[in-house]
Amino acid sequence: MGPLIVYDAISSNTNLLLAFFIGIGFGFVLEQSGFSSSRKLAGMFYGYDTTVLKVFFTAAIVAMTGLLFFSLFGWMNLDVVYVNPTYLTSAIAGGVIMGAGFILGGFCPGTSFCAAAIGKIDAFVFIGGLFIGIFIFTEGYPLWEGFHNAGFMGSPRVNEMIGLSQGVFAFLLILAAFGMFWAGEWAERKFAGNYR
């Protein structure tokens, strides 16, 4: 029965070791999918390359379907899987900052390390900026502590909020993902000439 760490099937050290290997695998797949190129990443915002959307949504729906089936078979207790708590205000503000940084810098935090790993100089500059941001956030924390903690909603799940069963919601999300893939590929064809 999973999650392995919660049910003491593995120690927390083994957990970290597994995370280490999974992290390396994740980085490798990111790099191989072309995520170390900020041109490719920025393509998402201009429409000429929607690889980001396709890779991440594929990962999300595959993992979601896998987890739901694991739960169905009694291999995984979804109720003890950690769900990141929602702080609505900071989630919105963070999304805006992260999106703006993504467009300006051409990376998101994970892919910047991926690109740095293959020696991209712009990625090192991006990471420098990232650490400056972390420094400002932590040192100035008392100033925005209230804002940071505003709009706390616990750990809601979208399907519970809109009153759907998790299975139906998952199915709709899969359909929505394929709809987006289709729209993305349409956009790729439409904007292909403009930006390459």
Binding site: K54, T58, I61, V62, T65, L68, F69, S71, L72, G74, M76, N77, L78, D79, S165, Q166, G167, V168, A170, F171, L173, I174, L175, F178, F181, W182, E185
Partner: peptide, 27 residues
């Protein structure tokens, strides 16, 4: 590949959608 993925995932999603919630949530 997108169609291949759709062929696999959409039926799986359908199964998950039709399974009663109580069985899925082994809380």
């Amino acid at each position: 590949p997108r169609i291949l993925l759709a062929i696999i995932l959409i039926p799986m999603g359908l199964i998950i959608a039709m399974v009663p919630e109580d069985t899925t949530g082994s809380r």
